[in-house]
Design a protein around this nucleic acid. Structure first.
Lengths: 134, 134
DNA sequence: TATTGTTATACTCTATAACTATA
DNA sequence: TATAGTTATAGAGTATAACAATA
């Protein structure tokens, strides 16, 4: 039963990811933009730790996003080894728009459920969030 | 609220994926092996359709798995354009072992939940599965 | 002609190892 | 020396376009 839920989650996540509009950025890029939107400016180390990705990997993603004009780097005033990364206005806009787009597919699916099914999902959401933490 | 659940699922799937032992194969490779274990021998077209991946992409994954000795190709007797793909004994074994390993992390998390939380997950599992389909 | 599988090519995301600059 | 970030390089997974073999 455990693996039943585990596999179901993996498959659903895959289906969500596949709902990608042509002009969308990749999952990792969006995930970084969302993290910056939610938690504000962060160093590269913060980002890589929170996304659980190596620093070089995060650096590469940040490079792409910077080239796309969605975020900016500024040296930290107190420790010049550190680099503060924050969203540009375009970055903020893209997050908002992307969220709307990604929700569309998922909302349609939810709308097709009955009240009991939706209630079950609502009750499970905080538990799933707890599992995802740490 | 919709996007809350959607993002939670994406994050949890990511956490599960990260619980990967060094010797593990990638998600896509495992997913193919699991599909073959569950539904038996299939053509490349079947696999790519069910995994919702293009044929060249699936072909590449199948090549890696074949080279690793986990599955084999045989020409279909009735239509020689088709190629039947099936698990080798080593493939079957690997699926069984991998399932045990992957469950370990997830089971630990589930064990830390209380009865209500587990009940909420159990109730939500069929709904999540429904969302993941088609 | 249409379908099935394959090869060629390219891009994203990931990693490890080695390097630079700062503390 | 240690830490923060970066560059170099490599491998997996994805895609589209073009091709071969078979129907």
């Amino acid at each position: 039963m455990d693996s039943d839920l585990r596999i179901t989650i993996a498959r659903l996540a895959r289906r969500i990811r596949q709902q990608r509009v042509e002009s969308d950025f990749g999952d990792s890029q969006l995930s970084v933009l969302f993290a910056l939107k939610l938690h504000g400016p962060q160093t590269l180390g913060d980002l890589s730790a929170n996304e659980r990705v190596t620093a070089p990997s995060m650096n590469r993603t940040v490079n792409l996003l910077e080239a796309a004009g969605l975020l900016g780097r500024t040296a930290s005033p107190d420790d010049r080894r550190k680099v503060i990364i924050e969203l540009t206005d375009a970055g903020h806009e893209l997050v908002d728009e992307t969220r709307r787009r990604r929700d569309a597919w998922f909302s349609e699916r939810l709308a097709a459920l009955d009240a009991d099914e939706r209630a079950a999902l609502e009750a499970a959401t905080p538990v799933l969030r707890k599992l995802a933490q740490e």
